[in-house]
Design a binder for these strands. Structure first.
Length: 614
DNA sequence: CGGACAAGCTGA
DNA sequence: CAGCTTGTCCGG
């Protein structure tokens, strides 16, 4: 009787396992056959890649089995294959999707032999005395993740070094640059290190694996410690469906390995605090905070510029504090999350903003008419309060602010918007703008920059960062708005460095008492996060509830199935709004069970579990 | 996904 | 009713 194997084909639309024969010559080839091994199989006359999922499957009745055509490559180890099955459940996706992420992007027929044997932990020469709070973080029980709070400019090394001594380590960071920097530092310390997912084979053998999102699927053996830095960062979440989150996958991976998991960052996310609040774990033991003086030191000075106190006849966008900052000889990065020149208009003689008399919303100026953006209703452009007919377009975008900045600072302002950048002066036409290489946008000496959020990623360092209109971030109509706003302050903090080095952030706002702002000013997000968690719980928002957004042509059929299912009573179905339904439940398991139980109708269907934006 | 096959539409 | 399109099914 010839050996059989079960194979999951790499075709998410099929998402099924099939049994194949394993010819003896393939079973004894160079690449060992294991759960996870990548093979090529015939299916309906086609040749499809797939993963071995069972080495001893039950004999299927009444079908003639075909043999595997080729053994292609080493694949994810069995425990990662199991993790992929868990993730497929957790984010209502297919196993094939996650196994792709967990597999090398080319053929791997063997692992590097030099590092495969020895446990390198013993030879680690990194400094032995970790601060007490770092030791405490690593010593907490392995049952639940420890949430570790430290300032944005704090050095991550003591935590990494202490973790290294315990055994194999997986570190996730949000950006490739951070991963490369940390991997370099680890290698310099003599640690066998792999940068995942690029060095797939290396990750299977290294003592330390560092990488971004996909590194949660690295082919490492059992881990002793898993660290996720900047666990609040949205980069960990896949935007396309399945909307999996690498932090949450890492938490589950650590749990399965019995590894200690540290969720580290300047702002513990409500989601992570929910992870840490598993049954049986006292809340106090799971949030570990850097000592007050070091957390304070790891923040720049955050200054609130209360726009309500500014002289209204001075700058339109830059208040007194910001204007003063612009006149100093320093590098200042200004952030405004809007581009262009909006079509809002205000009266040239009395300054009244043109608004609809019915809805109160601002009107757009098109030719000589006002247009209500909501209803499309038009009326002649005449000022409601003084009757004048001359209007000026409000400068609510980066371009308008750039002009004002140049006037105040009397030096050029570099605009950085999305993928392109340009000097503010009008001679730089759009073609010129597009042809410029990114590096040429950055000035040598002190310079002024203005841009959307992208500017925080593109300018490597600055003396100060100023948020021109932070209220827009704080009050955005999304349940995570305050969290996202605070994340911007964290990014800005990294650009300007700690207060001891003169790092400074200026926040222009009309909401100077907003708890998220006070948290940054005081370098202590504790109270704000606690309030945020409480608010989410009251509003039945994540993490107090689990949500799935359902959209696509087949969505209404799928929603009908969900409404008719066994657990329909425990589901909260809202919508459709713009073709999207929101299915929620206070119990994540109930939602996931319902999603899995409802049969997927044919046709386009997107199911986004726990999306960042809902 | 992509081939197979069935059921519907059209035109001389 | 051949010849074509469109839809549904199913894979070892």
């Amino acid at each position: 009787m010839q050996q059989m194997v079960q194979v999951l084909v790499d075709e998410p639309a099929i998402d099924r396992e099939f049994t194949y024969l394993l010819p003896p010559e393939l079973a004894s080839g160079r690449v060992p056959i294991n759960v996870g091994t990548v093979v090529l199989v015939p299916l309906q006359g086609r040749s499809i890649r797939g993963w071995v999922t069972d080495l001893d499957p039950p004999t299927p009745g009444d079908v003639e089995l075909l043999p595997i055509s080729r053994v292609m490559s080493l694949g994810p180890p069995p425990h990662v294959v199991e993790l992929a099955s868990w993730a497929a459940w957790r984010w209502a996706g297919t196993r094939a999707h996650f196994l792709r992420t967990a597999s090398a992007d080319r053929v791997v027929s063997g692992l590097p032999s030099h590092s495969s044997g020895g446990h390198r932990g013993a030879q680690i020469s990194v400094s032995a005395d970790a601060p007490a709070w770092v030791a405490a973080a690593l010593a907490s029980d392995n049952k639940t993740p420890a949430v570790v709070r430290m300032g944005p400019c704090a050095d991550e090394w003591p935590l990494v070094a202490a973790a290294l001594r315990r055994g194999p380590l997986l570190v996730l960071v949000p950006t490739v640059a951070w991963a490369a920097r940390l991997a370099g530092r680890l290698r310099q310390a003599g640690i066998s290190t792999a940068l995942a997912p690029r060095d797939w084979a290396g990750a299977a053998a290294a003592h330390a694996v560092v990488g971004t999102r996909a590194a949660a699927w690295a082919p490492c053996g059992p881990l002793r410690t898993v660290i996720v830095f900047d666990e609040h960062d949205e980069a960990y979440q896949e935007e396309a469906s399945p909307t999996w989150n690498a932090r949450d996958a890492a938490v589950e991976r650590a749990r399965r390995d019995g590894a200690q998991c540290l969720l580290v960052g300047p702002m513990p996310s409500p989601d992570s605090l929910a992870h840490a609040r598993q049954p049986g774990a006292p809340a106090a033991s799971t949030l570990i905070t850097a000592p007050r003086p070091s957390e304070l030191e790891a923040w720049p000075r955050v200054q609130i510029a209360d726009r309500r106190r500014d002289d209204p006849t001075a700058g339109e966008w830059c208040g007194e504090t910001l204007a003063g900052l612009l006149r100093t000889d320093s590098t200042v990065v200004c952030v405004l999350n809007r581009t262009g020149r909006a079509r809002l208009a205000y009266c040239a003689s009395c300054g009244e903003l043109a608004c609809s008399e019915h809805t109160g919303r601002p009107l757009r100026l098109e030719k000589q008419q006002f247009v209500d953006p909501g209803s499309g209703e038009k009326r002649p452009a005449v000022c409601e309060s003084c009757g004048a007919i001359r209007f000026r377009r409000a400068r609510v975008g980066v371009k308008g602010v750039a002009e004002e900045m140049e006037r105040l600072a009397r030096r050029p302002v570099i605009q950085i918007v999305g993928e392109s950048a340009a000097a503010a002066d009008s001679t730089a036409d759009s073609t010129h703008r597009r042809r410029r290489a990114p590096s040429s946008q950055l000035a040598d000496g002190p310079a002024l920059y203005i841009g959307t959020e992208a500017v925080l990623h593109r300018v490597p360092s600055a003396d100060a960062v100023a948020f021109v209109d932070f209220d827009q971030e704080l009050t955005a109509p999304r349940y995570r708005a305050a969290e996202e706003a605070f994340a911007l302050l964290v990014r800005a903090a990294r650009l300007v460095g700690p207060r001891t080095g003169g790092g400074r952030i200026v926040v222009q706002t009309r909401l100077p008492a907003h708890p998220a702002l006070l948290a940054a000013v005081e370098a202590d997000p504790g109270d704000w996060i606690r309030a945020e968690v409480e608010r989410r719980s009251q509003m039945h928002q994540p993490p107090a509830a689990a949500w799935a957004l359902v959209s696509g042509a087949a969505a209404s059929t799928y929603i009908d199935l969900l409404s008719a299912g066994d657990h329909a009573g425990e589901l909260d179905i809202a919508g459709p709004a713009e073709g999207t339904w929101r299915v929620g439940s206070d119990d994540q398991d109930v939602l996931l069970h319902a999603l899995a139980a409802a049969e997927r109708p044919s046709g386009r269907l997107r199911v986004a579990v726990d999306p960042l934006r809902a």
